[in-house]
Design a protein around this nucleic acid. Structure first.
Length: 378
DNA sequence: CTTTGTGTTGAA
DNA sequence: TCAACACAAAGG
């Protein structure tokens, strides 16, 4: 296609001078330049056909046929891109580049001009922030853009540039989106509280971790209630004054999609917040033992769906409703829990607990819960 | 050999 | 900062 290009390339400087004097095709390029500079960001939208593609050949030029081929064949002057940060390559491809600190950062070469422009946009957002001038990106308001912004900020500039040059940016972004899951700790982060990346995709909703509690012996005993640490209760499950005594019914969805309804109320006698009606059923079905950990989450979408999950201490599973140990993954630089669906049953020599041993365990776990409460108070 | 992308410059 | 240009380095 461009077989003879390199051949004529050598004389380019001379030819350029003469062409400049002729004022034939160079005029076209200059007009396109002025347009692109006067309309930095907007020029991308409509101008699919760039002005210079209509190379009007009036007088002096000799052998020009039609618009497009003329530029490529006759003149070896490379066509300017209508996109910011995009430069033509001798072989007809397009390079992307961005400048920082007086230095050019090369973003790679691309077959399509638009691809190069997108690469520039991504780099611009990483290098210059969210409202950087770009070719396509209008104004980021959607939650999808929030996710991409989080993704960008969790990678170094060098990493982003590397992805762009290798053309792996989109793959990596999508991969990160798939890996999102539950928030691990109560730590606050900008990356948390985001909604699932695919708007219509409701396979798994993004949810935020509210708190965990290591259940005490009494939580799984005959009192049929779970005490919710006050700090967490007041923060996440505020009760309206007046409803405190009667309490409210709260629905929680477990990992299997089953909905559990608990009465939630405040006990004046013990000055504590408790889950009462319905709790013992949960304890029974999950075979919850003292020392196990119950975890509360809430969807970050508008629905505010509540979730409940549990795991055995030590990552031990139990026979009736085995649960996988929680796997920690990392997304956007934030630790996140990923809870698998299936599970494997592991019974070790602790599988049969004697009554005495049980008491020890319970006491120990109670200590742990007190500690955790202090830690969690931060 | 082909292609990338750097060195460099002038313009904005 | 930015893109245009020339060409040496890099890659196959």
């Amino acid at each position: 296609m461009y077989t003879s290009l390199s051949f004529s390339e050598q004389r380019s400087s001379l030819l350029l001078v003469s062409l400049n004097m002729d004022g034939s095709c160079i005029d076209e390029s200059t007009t396109s330049d002025s347009i692109s500079t006067s309309l930095p960001a907007l020029s991308a939208l409509p101008a699919t056909k760039s002005p210079e593609s209509f190379c009007r050949v009036g007088s002096g030029t000799s052998v020009i046929l039609d618009s497009e081929s003329s530029i490529e064949a006759e003149s070896r002057k490379l066509p300017s891109s209508r996109f910011k940060g995009v430069v033509p390559q001798p072989n007809g491809r397009w390079g992307a580049q961005i400048y920082e600190k007086h230095q050019r950062v090369w973003l790679g070469t691309f077959n399509e001009e638009e691809e190069a422009a997108k690469a520039y946009d991504i780099a611009a957002q990483r290098f210059r922030g969210r409202d950087a001038v770009t070719n396509f990106k209008p104004l980021s308001e959607t939650e999808e853009d929030d996710i991409e912004a989080a993704f960008l900020n969790s990678h170094s500039k060098a990493e982003i540039v590397d992805m762009l040059r290798k053309h792996t940016y989109n793959d990596e972004l999508e991969q990160s989106k798939r890996n999102y899951g539950l928030d691990a700790n109560g730590k606050r982060s900008r990356a948390q509280g985001l909604v699932a990346p695919f708007g219509s995709d409701r396979v798994t909703k993004s949810r935020e971790q509210l708190f965990e509690k290591t259940v005490t012996p009494s939580d799984v005993g005959k009192l049929n209630r779970l005490v919710i640490p006050k700090q967490h209760a007041e923060k996440h499950f505020p009760l309206q004054t007046g409803t405190t005594s009667k309490g409210v019914l709260l629905n929680f969805e477990d990992m299997g999609g089953k909905v559990w309804r608990f009465r939630y109320s405040y006990w004046n006698s013990s000055q504590s917040y408790v889950l009462t009606k319905g709790w013992s059923r949960f304890v029974k079905e999950k075979n919850l033992k003292a020392g196990d950990i119950v975890s509360f989450q809430r969807s970050t979408g508008g629905d505010k769906q509540l979730y409940i999950d549990w795991k055995a201490r030590n990552g031990q599973t139990n026979q009736i409703n085995p649960v996988e140990p929680v796997e920690m993954v990392r997304l956007f630089g934030v630790n996140i829990f990923k809870v698998p669906v299936n599970s494997s049953v592991v019974v070790d020599n602790n599988g049969s607990w004697t009554g005495k041993r049980m008491i020890e365990m319970e006491l120990l776990s109670f200590e742990c819960s007190k500690k955790q409460r202090v830690i969690g108070a931060v």
